[in-house]
Design a protein around this nucleic acid. Structure first.
Lengths: 192, 192
DNA sequence: CGTCTATTTGAATGTACTCAAAAGCGGTGG
DNA sequence: CCACCGCTTTTGAGTACATTCAAATAGACG
């Protein structure tokens, strides 16, 4: 059950079998049906989630009422709202399953205790967070440094497999433009 | 010299005086004159930097040749390119001093050893990184959820003191539009 | 097969950008 | 102390990229 997570951890630090068992004893799993919600706007985010299988989207609703996707989370990615979880504030985000999804739940309540028992994990999460910051910096650069059309082409070449997993209107939202615009960019490519 | 940093750390974890001394023995400081560079595009980022005094901007040069600012760093903020530092790749970013600036340098070379000697610091940096991710998520939401005009008004009310520290063309870049546009937004407010 | 959702297409619109020029501001040296 | 020079901000006209709105078409699922 937890082996994809343990394999992921092993890429960063070496846990003893005992430490691994102790860690997993604090975890649980959760299944989310397609279109169901892992986290809803207004809730306090109660945990960090590791995607075992499936695909999630994190979005917020802008003032005009449109959904703005800020992240897709697939296998082997952690997802949470760190601000909401650590400061116990309502999250502005909604996390919804795009596919039937299975996640590992690492409750915030037990995180302190786990880090005390297995300090090595503090290191693992530090490294995971470094990657998350790097990814966020990259995304900012991506969104600002390119036009809408460039972002689309860059994304489909960088993530060719992923594109087929999400509807185009969600991809458009993630890339920062409208579904109509995406459709027109695609039409332009086909006719040339 | 290092007391602002130690005070900042104390907000998250409690170091013994010995641990604090040990930690600071691995650090050094660096002064950057106004308009000089802490990091240049193409370099491998060699360290994490903590701003003691002054103000830095992190930007990249887009394909059209314009400078896009992605971050300002003032007192008590850490700044680095985590991707470049941890994977030893050339950074796409330039970090330049807007004011005469003094930073603490935490070299990547010694980071492993420091975390081994003072494991508590692993926790401190994990928490710092959590904040950085939360800030990056917030910035994404900020950039996407609002129009240019809204971003300007939101920013000047949220950061009233900071606005006076940077020229308007840099603020415009950070907020994701042109200096001309910012000037027109300001004109609109004055005439009404 | 029918319904609901997603995608495409087109026309009109708008927000923010580009380019160019003028005005303002600040520092430096005579 | 003032004049000059360079840099920043302002202003205006024309433009472009992407949006909005509406309608038609295509696809997916029961």
């Amino acid at each position: 059950m937890y082996s994809p997570l343990l394999a992921h951890i092993a890429r960063y630090i070496a846990l003893t079998p005992e430490e691994a068992t102790l860690f997993t004893s604090y975890l649980k799993t959760q299944s989310i049906a397609r279109k169901d919600f892992l986290l809803r706007e207004g809730q306090v985010c109660p945990a960090s989630y590791f995607v075992l299988q499936g695909c999630l989207r994190t979005y917020f609703v802008s003032e005009k009422g449109t959904e703005q996707i800020i992240q897709f989370s697939i296998e082997n990615w952690w997802v949470t709202d760190y601000a909401s979880m650590s400061q116990h504030t309502p999250t502005p985000y909604t996390v919804q399953a795009i596919e039937p999804t299975e996640v590992v739940v690492f409750d915030h309540e037990v995180q302190e205790e786990v880090f005390r028992c297995v300090p090595k994990l503090e290191r693992y999460f530090r490294l995971i967070l470094q990657r998350a910051v790097a990814a966020a910096q990259f995304r900012n650069k991506f969104l600002f440094g390119m036009s809408g059309e460039e972002r689309y082409h860059h994304f489909i070449t960088a993530q060719p497999g992923f594109v087929q997993r999400v509807p185009q209107y969600m991809l458009a939202s993630y890339l920062g433009f409208t579904p109509e615009f995406l459709s027109k960019v695609r039409a332009k490519v086909n006719h040339s």
